[in-house]
Design a protein around this nucleic acid. Structure first.
Length: 150
DNA sequence: GCCAACGTTGGC
DNA sequence: GCCAACGTTGGC
């Protein structure tokens, strides 16, 4: 059982969209970064908990928690020429990209990026650095610290 | 396999 | 809208 942070742009897909989705679930599609892909493919497991983080918006922040309900599956959008996520080099024989399915758990009073940056006890979280990873691990202790700050 | 050029992300 | 950081591409 591990902890993660998934970034999303709320204008594209917000935690409210997740909450109002069918079964409050969604397939986390469109990850097109190898490091993030490797986490999804190799390490994210059913039952893992996920901070949902809103980026590229007014107040970047962790806004809630979801849980992984399905491990990695091939992301079908890589084969869809009409999709933004189309990848001409991906084939059905050798798919490049995967996604997992997550389910809404709860909203949190937003834990803002500014707050996280100001918290000296948080040192490992990739958000702390100038890191653009869209899927990043959260250590057990930092997960607990962040939760406890609420 | 190196690395310069280029593109993208994302906070501000 | 700017720009720093960093990932990707492609020529050699």
């Amino acid at each position: 059982m591990a902890y993660w942070l998934f970034k999303t742009e709320p204008e594209t897909f917000s935690i409210d969209d997740l909450k109002s989705a069918s079964q409050q679930r969604t397939f986390w599609e469109g990850i097109r970064n190898y490091q993030a892909r490797n986490f999804l493919r190799d390490r994210v497991q059913i039952g893992d908990q996920v901070f949902i983080y809103h980026s590229s918006c007014k107040i970047p922040a962790i806004v809630g928690i979801a849980v992984v309900v399905k491990a990695a599956e091939t992301d079908p959008h890589q084969f869809d020429m009409n999709s933004d996520y189309y990848d001409a080099k991906a084939t059905h024989e050798a798919p490049r990209w995967v996604g997992v399915t997550i389910q809404y758990q709860q909203h949190l009073t937003p834990i803002t990026l500014a707050e996280i940056k100001a918290n000296n006890a948080i040192t490992e979280l990739a958000l702390k650095k100038a890191n653009r990873l869209s899927i990043m691990p959260v250590t057990d202790s930092e997960w607990q610290l962040l939760i406890a700050s609420r």
